[in-house]
Structures are given as C-alpha cells and as structure tokens.
Amino acid sequence: MTFFKDYTHELIISGILVVLIIILRMVSTNLVRRFAKTSHIIEYRTNLVIKYIHLLITILALIAVVVIWGVHPKDIVIAVSSIATVVGVAMVAQWSILSNITSGVILFFSFPFKIGDSIRIHDKDFPIMGEIEDITAFHILLKTEEGEQVVYPNNLLFQKGISIFTSHYEEKEFMD
C-alpha cells in the first residue's frame, strides 16, 4: 500500500498521459482520413501514414513515462544514442536491407505506381510483368499472368526501367 502512497503523483500523471495518448491517436486518425478523402489519396497509403503517426505518438509517450517516473533526460539521450549506434552499425553491415528500406521510403512518398497497377520490369536476364498486389518497406509483391507470385526488392526497382500500366480495378478502400 505504500507504493500508491509514495507514487500517487506519478500514477495520476501517467493515467492522464494514457488518456491523452488515446485522444491523440483518435484525433490523428480522423484528421489523416479526412485529409485523404479531400485529397483523394488511396486508402492503403492512408493506413500506413496512420500507423507511422501512432508509432511516433507511442515513442513520445514512452519517453514521457520514463521522464515522469524520474529518469533523467540525459540518461535517456545516452541510452537512445547507444541503441542508435548499434542499430546503425548493424544496418551498414547489411547495406542491402538499408537500401531496400530507403527505396521503400522513396516509393512510399513518390508512389509512381500503386496496388492494382500492372508493371513491366525491364531486366535483360529476367524480365517480369505482373500486377502489384502489395507494396512493403522491403519489396513489392507481383502476380504474373500465369498466377506466379514474385517478390521483387525495392532497391532493384530503382536500378531497372519500369513500364507502368494503369489499374484495371476500381480504387477501393483498404483496411488492415
């Protein structure tokens, strides 16, 4: 019982923070969806933006909780920079993963094609033509006319020429 007596202030502030997080997530979701409808952005990209905003809110909330419970900001900076250094070294060692993630971010914001479009990848050794079924941070998933599913790395999309054929499907709302 002394725990609740000793940490009443921190518990109250943490409770307020949880309520604030829930409100921020709902408000940000509604704002992004409203913006997507007015700007006619396809729903798949909208859901990804919402996920990234929720991730950012969660990270900021975790930092706030750590500060509320008495960890010094200097210690947080040291821990985060140490983790970032280890992750950075690991990512440089795996350049292809970093290259795919960077390509995925570029594809996300430039979106030259979308799910449902048919594309032809001009590769002299292994030309591929198929319909885009999914776009992720690391690769795109294509379905060929023969029904074969092809996973194609994002970084290779920037190294090859691509022909884009517009979607023969109606744009529909994507929910995950």
Rank of each mutant, 00 (worst) to 15 (best):
M1N: 09
T2R: 04
F3L: 12
K5T: 11
D6E: 15
T8E: 14
T8L: 14
I13S: 09
G15T: 11
V18G: 05
L20A: 14
I21F: 10
I22W: 08
I23G: 03
T29N: 02
T29A: 01
T29F: 00
N30F: 01
V32D: 02
R34H: 07
F35K: 10
F35G: 03
A36S: 14
T38L: 04
Y52C: 08
L55V: 02
L55A: 11
L56F: 14
L56K: 09
L60H: 06
I63P: 06
V66F: 13
W69S: 12
G70N: 13
K74D: 11
D75V: 07
I76P: 06
A79Y: 02
S81N: 07
I83N: 03
V87M: 14
V87E: 12
G88N: 07
G88S: 15
V89Y: 12
A90E: 10
A90C: 11
S96T: 15
L98N: 15
N100K: 02
I101V: 15
I101D: 02
I101P: 00
T102Y: 10
V105M: 14
I106T: 13
F111E: 13
P112D: 14
F113Y: 10
K114N: 10
G116F: 01
D117M: 07
I119R: 03
R120M: 05
I128K: 07
I128C: 09
G130W: 00
G130K: 01
E131G: 06
I132K: 01
I132S: 02
E133F: 00
T136Y: 00
H139E: 13
I140W: 00
Q149Y: 08
Q149L: 06
V151D: 08
L156I: 09
K160I: 04
K160N: 15
G161Q: 12
T166P: 05
S167C: 05
H168G: 10
Y169D: 12
E171R: 07
F174L: 09
